[in-house]
Every structure is written in C-alpha cells, then in structure tokens.
C-alpha cells in the first residue's frame, strides 16, 4: 500500500519534472528540437527495456486501428504546447489548466462512449469535482 503511494507520487513528480526539464532544454536548443531529443532518448531506453522484459508483442500493432497507433505523434504537440505554456504562465497554472482539460475531455469521452470506451454514467460528484478544480484556478488568479 505504502509502496504504491510512493510509486504513484514519484510518477506525478516526474511528470511535472519532465515538463520543467523540457522547458529548460527548449530555452537552449528550441522547443521542437527538445521534443525530438527527449523522445528519441526515451524511445531508445523503452526499446531496451522492452527487449529485456518482452512483456508483449511489438508485432501486435497489426491488430491495432491505425488511428490509435498514431496517438504517439500527439507527443510532439503536447510537449510544444506545455513548454510554451510554462514559459508564459508558469508551472502551476500550466499543470492546473492541463489537468482540468484532461479530466474534462476524459469525462466527455467516457460519458458518450467515444473511441470504444464503455459508456459510463457520470453523476453530480464529477460535475462538482470539475467545478471545484476550475474554482481553484480562479482562486489563484484572485
């Protein structure tokens, strides 16, 4: 249980650290270049881990819809937008707005069962939660 919390917490810390590091690297070599370099080294590392653990099948891509396979390409615009946002409004505002949009879009996709997700009913708690999150950003802006 405690170990799980540590992993989940470190994962979150690393997500933010990644945005900040990308922003730093972009400052020196350009944003698209930073996105290229960090994803190249990440790719090489992930490939080595995959070749070591062999937990799945790279050849399985033939069974995946091309649209879903293309999702990885979003990484480029995600990094570009996040870095530009961090450089304009700082890390806290960027992560806050990013998370709200992320949860809102996930909420809509689940609500309507888009992309083959299981349609699920969303109740008052989800609306209240989103409203609180937006309220939090407004408090920061006061």
């Amino acid at each position: 249980m405690f170990r799980g919390i540590v992993f989940a917490f470190l994962g979150g810390a690393c997500i933010t650290l990644q945005g900040v590091a990308n922003s730093r690297i972009s400052h020196d070599i350009g944003t698209w270049q930073a996105a290229t370099v960090t994803q190249l080294t990440g790719f090489i590392m992930a490939l080595m881990i995959y070749l070591f653990v062999r937990d799945g099948d790279l050849g399985g891509f033939r069974k995946v819809k091309p649209l879903y396979l293309a999702g990885g390409a979003f990484g480029s615009v995600i990094i570009f937008s996040e870095v530009t946002a961090i450089q304009t409004i700082g890390v806290t505002f960027t992560i806050s707005a990013l998370l709200i949009a992320q949860l809102l879009v996930t909420f809509l996709i689940d609500r309507f069962g888009w992309f083959g997700t299981t349609k699920s009913k969303m109740g008052a708690p989800q609306f209240i939660g989103l409203a609180m999150m937006i309220g939090g950003v407004l408090i920061m802006k006061l």
């Binding site: 995946v64 979003f74 937008s81 806050s96 990013l98 949009a101 992320q102 879009v105």
Partner: peptide, 30 residues
C-alpha cells in the same frame, strides 16, 4: 498560455485512450 495548457491536456486525454487501445494488443513496454 491557459489555452495552450488546456489544449495539451485535451491531447493527453486522447493519447491516454489511444495508448490503452494499443496496450491491449501489444503490452505496456511495446
């Protein structure tokens, strides 16, 4: 800045779902 951050969040949400669709057939490291 807020719009760019929100756009990134939207793309992360989409990517997460697409990745899950891929994960089913390929496993998490592939």
């Amino acid at each position: 800045g807020l719009l760019l951050a929100a756009f990134a969040g939207m793309m992360v949400a989409l990517q997460t779902i697409f990745n899950n669709r891929t994960d089913v057939h390929m496993g998490s490291w592939a």
